[in-house]
Amino acid sequence: ILQTSVDAYRKMRNTLRYLLGALHGYDETVEHLPLERMPSLERWVLHRLQELDGVVKAGYAAYDFKKVYSALFNFCVVDLSAFYLDVRKDALYCDRPDADRRRACRTVMHEVFMRLTAWLAPIMPFTMEEVWLSRFPSEDDSVHLRTFPKTPQDWHNGALAENWRTLRRLRRVVTGALEVERREKRIGSSLEAAPQVYVADPAYRAAMRAEAPGDIDDFLAEIAITSQAVLIDGAAPDGAFRIDDIADIAVVPGRAEGGKCARSWKYSTQIGADKRYPELSPRDADAVAYWDATHG
Rank of each mutant, 00 (worst) to 15 (best):
R13M: 11
L16N: 08
R17C: 06
G21L: 05
A22C: 15
A22G: 14
A22K: 10
H24K: 10
G25T: 00
Y26Q: 11
E28F: 08
V30H: 12
H32G: 13
R37E: 15
P39A: 06
W44N: 09
H47L: 09
R48A: 05
D53K: 03
D53C: 06
D53R: 02
V56G: 10
Y60D: 04
A62Y: 04
Y63P: 01
F65L: 15
A71N: 02
L80S: 05
S81T: 09
S81N: 07
A91P: 02
Y93A: 07
Y93T: 04
C94S: 09
P97S: 10
A99D: 13
D100Q: 07
D100N: 12
A104L: 06
R106T: 03
E111W: 14
A121F: 09
I123R: 10
I123P: 02
I123C: 08
S134Y: 06
R135D: 08
E139G: 14
S142Y: 12
R146P: 13
T147M: 11
T151I: 11
T151K: 05
T151C: 14
N157F: 12
W164Y: 12
W164D: 06
L167Q: 04
R168G: 04
R169T: 00
V173T: 06
E179D: 15
R183I: 03
E184P: 05
Q196L: 15
V197Y: 02
Y198E: 05
Y198M: 09
V199S: 01
P213E: 07
I216M: 03
L220W: 02
I223F: 14
A224M: 02
S227V: 11
Q228C: 14
V230C: 12
D238P: 04
R242Q: 05
D244C: 05
A250M: 06
A250V: 07
G258K: 01
G259H: 11
R263D: 13
S268K: 06
G272V: 01
R283A: 05
A285F: 00
V288S: 00
W291R: 15
D292Q: 11
D292C: 09
A293C: 05
A293D: 09
